[in-house]
Amino acid sequence: MKAKIIATAAALVGFVALGATAFKQSLTPYVSFKEAQRSRGVVQVSGEVDKSRTTFDSERGILTFYVKDHEGTVMRVEYRGTKPGNFEQASKVVCIGRCDGAVFRAEKLLLKCPSKYQKAPQNGLEGEQP
């Protein structure tokens, strides 16, 4: 019985520790581009897209655009893939990825437009996805 209690306590401590480290490591914090340049891990930077300077390289399949974060830093963002469908409408874009010198390589783009799973508010009603 005593051995069981000790083993249980050890298992609990072990998994709480594992959970806490995994939790801390996989948090992808929202940062500015300046902080992203200092950080090594995957981060999220949100900002406004300068739509006039968006280009697409069809040979390499890379979308390049410039994003201004909340501190006013403008950075070149490269994303492998075609322009996401709602790019033009997006007021804000969240780039998830990491900095590589003067370029931010985005692995994923989240577009902050009124959600695509949701209808426009009307009569004070909004939709949701169950």
Binding site: A22, F23, Q25, S26, L27, T28, P29, Y30, V42, Q44
Partner: peptide, 9 residues
């Protein structure tokens, strides 16, 4: 700030 954990967690 508030943030989410990735699937790696």
């Amino acid at each position: 700030s508030a943030s989410n954990v990735g699937t790696a967690y």
